[in-house]
Design a protein around this nucleic acid. Structure first.
Lengths: 267, 267
DNA sequence: CAGTGGTCTAGACCACCAA
DNA sequence: TGGTGGTCTAGACCACTGC
């Protein structure tokens, strides 16, 4: 068989952790055994997706969750350990476990890998160049998992460091979850864009993939970044995902790398 | 105080886990408490550095290590969990825990992030252009943690994919650990360079940092990669480290990104 | 079958935080 | 002081591998 479901002494009365795994329902073919803590992780994840706890909130204590799911505290602990490793949640000894957010001081700009060649602090001056709604092209809709011609929001902005325009970003967002996004709201907001998305639209970016190339500056990019056309620039295409691997943003960044570099740590 | 050292029942006879932590020796100022499993991790790490177990080898079972260090199996487990998370060790259920190596089929080219734009397989044709010993420049010696004018080995190679030269790599290695490295040996070797370093010189690269920029092709690079001078190319400067954060390689890669891209996953 | 890693539990105690 | 996460232990049982 596939001895799953708590299987411990307590497995009787009312329940939240029922129908945990894949019992004998389906024929056979890969029993798909899933450890308890994985199932707990999935349940917690669902609560995160469902908005039971919002970014910055405390989630219930390990003990409470253990009672709720009818498993031992150690099992909950292992589930939360993985969520913490995935950066979905942050543990703080003595205080509790919190839903991760892009709004925190130190974890700010978690996805921005550009650094000054000298280790200096980078305070970005941000300027939204435009923000408008349009219909997704075939390519954009494919990358965002939309249907062709679905509404999207397009944002273009320039980031400058110490007066030098350094980053040009074009951002495409699915129109439905980002209904109401405007140039004014974007411009007046301080802080990371992803924190803004969390607070204003309830959309939390969880992970992202980037494809990096070297490209010569287009006429447009050259103008906006103040470099000659053809100047070598870093092109960074990012797809950012919310919970459940749902793509929620396409971002094409063009970086000047005269006095900055993209930093990556391999292990 | 700072109740450390096993502190469990068994803490008497012969020992390997003596003088574990920081007792009352030093005055005060940050007691520097370190959990047992961290200390165990450090001990295992020392054995890895010391070559007690070589890349590809099995290390002793959790139970054996628990006995050896006089802690519970769970504590050893947590230590090994972290080593596995750091990619220093690989767990294989039913078989044992193995020292990680660059020679494995699937983990091959762990540090190479270049991919074909279409997801195609990339079989590299490699060509060593030159290999010679020289004295480290001030910059090279600084980056490798050497003294100026220390001997280093310089290697230049070109990687081509489907006949198109795509990667030009300049590699600097500290002369002492890599004594005897020759163009012939490098050329005749198949497989990843880092696997070769492991088997021939006992040097295992554990992690690396990369700084990425966009640059116009130099005359030299243009010739070797078959692009016009000034053509935008990706410049990847990597410093690779062995155990203990000791730098062991400086590598400057120049990548064509016409039909390839550098892939990065953020989380 | 024995040996290895993997899961789960239960309980004790420690470190940190806030009230 | 009580609550939270963090560490450590001990023991049971499961899943995978190879003899």
């Amino acid at each position: 068989m596939n001895t799953n479901s708590p299987a411990n002494t307590a497995n009787e009365t009312h329940g939240t952790a029922e129908a945990m795994t894949t019992p004998g329902s389906l024929p056979s073919a890969t029993p798909a055994f899933s450890p308890l803590y994985q199932q707990i992780k999935t349940l917690i994840l669902k609560s995160l997706q469902g908005g039971e706890w919002k970014p910055g909130d405390v989630i219930p204590s390990e003990q409470d969750l253990a009672v709720r799911f009818k498993v031992s505290q150690g099992t909950v602990r292992k589930a939360i350990d993985e969520l913490a490793a995935d950066n979905l949640v942050v543990r703080r000894q003595g205080k509790g476990t919190f839903v991760a957010t892009h709004a925190e001081r130190h974890i700010q700009y978690r996805f921005l890998r550009l650094q000054a060649d000298n280790g200096e602090e980078m305070r970005a001056e941000r300027k939204i160049v435009e923000c408008r709604r349009l219909r997704a092209s075939a390519e954009i809709s494919r990358l965002l998992g939309l249907r062709s011609a679905d509404p999207v929001v397009f944002v273009r902005r320039v980031l400058a460091f110490q007066g030098t325009p350094t980053i040009l970003e074009d951002v495409w967002l699915p129109g439905t979850p980002f209904k109401g996004l405007s140039l004014e709201a974007l411009s007046s907001d301080q802080g990371p864009m992803y924190a803004f998305f969390e607070s204003e639209f309830g959309v939390r970016m969880v992970r992202a993939n980037e494809k990096i190339k070297a490209e010569g500056a287009s006429a447009e990019a050259a103008t906006l970044l103040g470099v000659p056309p053809g100047h070598p620039l870093l092109s960074v295409e990012r797809i950012a995902y919310t919970y459940n691997d749902v793509p929620m943003e396409l971002r094409r960044g063009i970086y000047r790398t005269d006095s900055h570099h993209y930093k990556n740590e391999l292990s």
